[in-house]
């Protein structure tokens, strides 16, 4: 049990970090712009987990006040992340708008092909 204890205590953090690193890798390594935006969303959702999981309290319920319940989880991270989700979809929409424009001008959404086209023009 002593071996499992730290794993249980930090499992949420580790999965959060895995999602964050996966998002970072996709954003840096992949040239396709839609894939890059998907990587950015992965990164964003990992931040949701990072905020929400420390607010959870064992035996608690959702923070909706009722006479029969005594333990609630922390409501403040929930509020912050509600804002973050909506802002996230706004930035995603703007990014996808840019992708559509880039596709109209260059005829491709691959970063490398755009670079070679620009080199050819010079």
């Amino acid at each position: 049990m002593e071996v499992i204890q730290p794993i249980l205590a930090h499992f949420n953090h580790w999965i959060t970090i895995f999602l964050l690193v996966a998002g970072l890798y996709v954003v840096v390594a992949r040239g396709n712009m839609i894939k890059k935006l998907i990587g950015l969303s992965l990164f964003q959702t990992s931040v949701y987990l990072l905020y929400i999981s420390p607010g959870k309290i064992f035996g608690g319920t959702a923070p909706i006040i009722d006479d029969k319940i005594e333990v609630y989880s922390n409501p403040l991270p929930h509020v912050l992340i509600l804002t973050a989700i909506v802002v996230g979809v706004a930035t995603l929409a703007l990014g996808l708008g840019l992708v559509v424009r880039i596709n109209e001008v260059y005829g491709t959404i691959e970063e490398d092909e755009i670079f070679t086209q620009e080199d050819d023009e010079e």
Partner: peptide
């Protein structure tokens, strides 16, 4: 994790609107 409001928003915005935007 007891974040019911966030879960609702994530299901509608993350799985709904984002997916539709990306498919478009």
């Amino acid at each position: 994790l007891d974040a019911v409001d966030v879960a609702m928003t994530e299901a509608s915005v993350g799985a709904g609107i984002s997916t539709v935007l990306m498919l478009t």
